[in-house]
């Protein structure tokens, strides 16, 4: 009964009774639906890959020029969602370490907790500084952050006044 011509006619001919149809519009709708499904699947795959924070595409590591400071962070974050960052201080122990977060960074993120806790915190025109007592190296510091602004943000973290590590974050609204 059903042939290719018959199928084609079904999809092309618009009826006006009992309702008014528009089959060309309907076929366009179906096509758009299919594109939409592909887009949704792509979105899901990208989310799994970490484009929207927490995943391989998102995790990044930055190391200072002399290799003393290593930062493991997420390139992508979401506004208001908790975000983790690990700072690893290499090199010789015995001296206190001073980490300085540049102003744009402290403005973008609220720092919720630091483990182990710093011995001292200092505010300043160039941002906030955290002082950690002399300890064995490497020393791993875990920061729990919460982004408070959306879109693209840049900042710097430096150790003991050495050349800073520039960081770029994209924060989804």
């Amino acid at each position: 009964m059903s042939s290719i011509e018959d199928d084609d006619r079904q999809l092309r001919v618009s009826r006006s009774h009992p309702i008014r149809e528009d089959m060309s519009f309907q076929c366009t709708t179906w096509r758009m639906e299919r594109y939409g499904w592909v887009a949704l699947m792509l979105l899901t795959v990208l989310a799994l890959a970490g484009l929207f924070a927490e995943g391989p595409l998102s995790s990044a590591t930055a190391v200072s020029e002399n290799g003393r400071l290593e930062i493991r962070y997420d390139r992508f974050a979401r506004n208001g969602a908790p975000m983790r960052m690990a700072l690893i201080i290499h090199g010789e122990g015995g001296e206190e370490a001073v980490l300085r977060f540049s102003e744009p960074l402290t403005d973008t993120f609220s720092i919720e907790t630091i483990r182990p806790a710093p011995a001292q915190e200092r505010g300043g025109p160039q941002g906030d500084a955290y002082v950690f007592p002399a300890e064995d190296r490497p020393l791993t510091l875990r920061f729990a952050l919460r982004p408070e602004k959306s879109w693209l943000h840049r900042g710097e973290i430096s150790l003991d006044g050495e050349p800073p590590i520039p960081l770029t974050f994209f924060i989804y609204p």
């Binding site: 059903s2 018959d6 199928d7 084609d8 079904q10 999809l11 009826r15 009992p18 309702i19 008014r20 149809e21 528009d22 089959m23 519009f25 309907q26 076929c27 709708t29 179906w30």
Partner: peptide, 25 residues
């Protein structure tokens, strides 16, 4: 309105199912 809501469509006419349409829908 059509774009946002779509349009109605006949699926069976005089007891005959329009299978090509049904499959797509």
């Amino acid at each position: 309105g059509r774009l946002i809501e779509g349009m109605p469509m006949v699926l069976v006419e005089d007891g005959v199912p329009l299978r090509a349409r049904m499959k797509k829908a």
